[in-house]
Computed example of a mutant assay.
Amino acid sequence: MDRKRDDLTIGELATLAGVGVETVRFYQRKGLTPEPLRPAGAIRRYGAADVERLRFVKSAQSLGFSLDEVAELLRLEDGAHCKAASSLAESKLADIRRKLAELSRMEAVLSGLVKACHVGRGKVSCPLIAAFHAAG
């Protein structure tokens, strides 16, 4: 791409940020990224700051932050609100740790049920199916 990075179409912006055009539009509707003015008879143009903002959103999402949480981080992005950003991250970390504990519990139960299925013999009912019936 030989276009200047401050004269990008929405398609070029999306490609550089690693998202789809509809994702860009969705983020604009959610207020996560600005929608530049459309000059009379022309198309909207985007710049390097728009690419970085989209990358910021995707990076935060990849760590489990919801779009509402990303919006809050964006409000704090000037760097002067590190304590508030840290608090948000600590809350996310606690949430992830709770989810990991639940996933670990699920893995242990399911692993035991799978093992029980492999040792089942004869006309014994399937331990996996039986466990789900018993839980219901």
Rank of each mutant, 00 (worst) to 15 (best):
20 G>R: 13
50 D>C: 08
131 A>Y: 13
49 A>F: 03
103 L>Q: 10
126 C>L: 05
136 G>N: 10
45 R>K: 14
93 L>F: 05
33 T>D: 00
77 E>K: 12
119 V>F: 12
120 G>C: 15
90 E>R: 12
117 C>L: 04
116 A>L: 14
108 A>D: 03
32 L>T: 09
93 L>E: 09
12 E>W: 08
70 V>F: 06
90 E>M: 12
121 R>M: 10
71 A>I: 02
118 H>M: 03
8 L>Q: 05
39 P>D: 01
15 T>P: 00
105 R>E: 14
49 A>S: 11
134 A>Q: 15
67 L>Q: 08
19 V>N: 02
71 A>D: 10
70 V>L: 02
83 K>M: 00
107 E>L: 08
30 K>R: 15
27 Y>R: 00
40 A>I: 12
26 F>G: 00
62 S>E: 11
89 A>K: 01
126 C>Y: 12
95 D>Y: 08
25 R>F: 06
114 V>G: 00
4 K>E: 13
22 E>P: 02
69 E>D: 13
44 R>K: 15
75 R>C: 02
24 V>C: 11
101 A>V: 14
105 R>W: 07
16 L>W: 02
13 L>W: 09
100 L>D: 07
100 L>M: 15
130 A>L: 07
79 G>S: 03
78 D>A: 09
74 L>R: 02
51 V>L: 12
67 L>D: 05
126 C>V: 10
68 D>C: 01
107 E>H: 12
121 R>W: 04
112 G>E: 15
93 L>T: 11
106 M>A: 15
20 G>M: 05
